[in-house]
Write a protein that binds this DNA or RNA. Sequence first.
DNA 1: AGATCGCCCTGCTTGC
DNA 2: TGCAAGCAGGGCGATC
Length: 285
Amino acid sequence: MPELPEVEVVRRGLERWTAGRTVEDVEVLHPRAVRRHLSGGGDFAARLRGLRFGTAMRRGKYLWVPLDEAESSLLGHLGMSGQLLVQPEEAVDEKHLRIRIRFDDALGTELRFVDQRTFGGLSLHGNTPDGLPDVIAHIARDPLDPAFDDTAFHLALRLRRTTVKRALLDQSLISGVGNIYADEALWRSKLHYERPTATLTRPRTAELLGHVRDVMREALDQGGTSFDSLYVNVNGESGYFDRSLDAYGREDEPCRRCGTPMRRRPWMNRSSYFCPRCQRPPRVS
DNA sequence: AGATCGCCCTGCTTGC
DNA sequence: TGCAAGCAGGGCGATC
């Protein structure tokens, strides 16, 4: 599942292989892939034609390409299974190819959006004055953004009446964290996922943020090294799927700190993995 | 308005 | 062997 590090790898790929190129033709092969483009696939294709790609940007799990004079942007979200691939034009279509973007140059490659589960998609939007696609103005800065405000984040946690994992996944508080990295950062912090955010001290919040950043940077380092070909790697399952995880997916396996079998608990229609000894539940939950 | 919940979607795995 | 249920889960809209 692509979270911040995976999306950043894709952003770098887009920057390298598509910046400065002008769109010649667009094919929308599945309407759900452009569902956030409210005026439909035909309008999406017509409006994108002739526009020039700028340098790809990212906030949290969203990425976007400023177009022409950056009055608008091509916005993308990978959902759970989305891929953006730069492929030779003659390459056989992927089974789940949803959108094809051809360029007007002679480089011989095209951009493809491939998505099995169709939770992701592409769309066109106007930009806010600070260059953000208007529909993601509510997305908070991510922890790798130099302008992320640690103090404001801590104060927001203190005011919320929620639990720490819900807060980590709330993209309006902090963006880019998904189920995998949330569990990893909580394990490193020895925090139970149901700990009320109002009980976190400033040092605990600082420690948690530090672990979020560490685990993301480590994943990014691994993903970055495998990205060296004519290929924007976005596959959440193949890229660096074998990255070492301490919590996620390790039910019944020994905790790497204390040896206690790790547990999985159903949580918000998904799962939380944690060590029952290192990550004690709060007294009142 | 903050918090919570259900829904969207497909392919692989598990269980009867 | 076949079929159904379970699971993966980010984001958004509806609801309280």
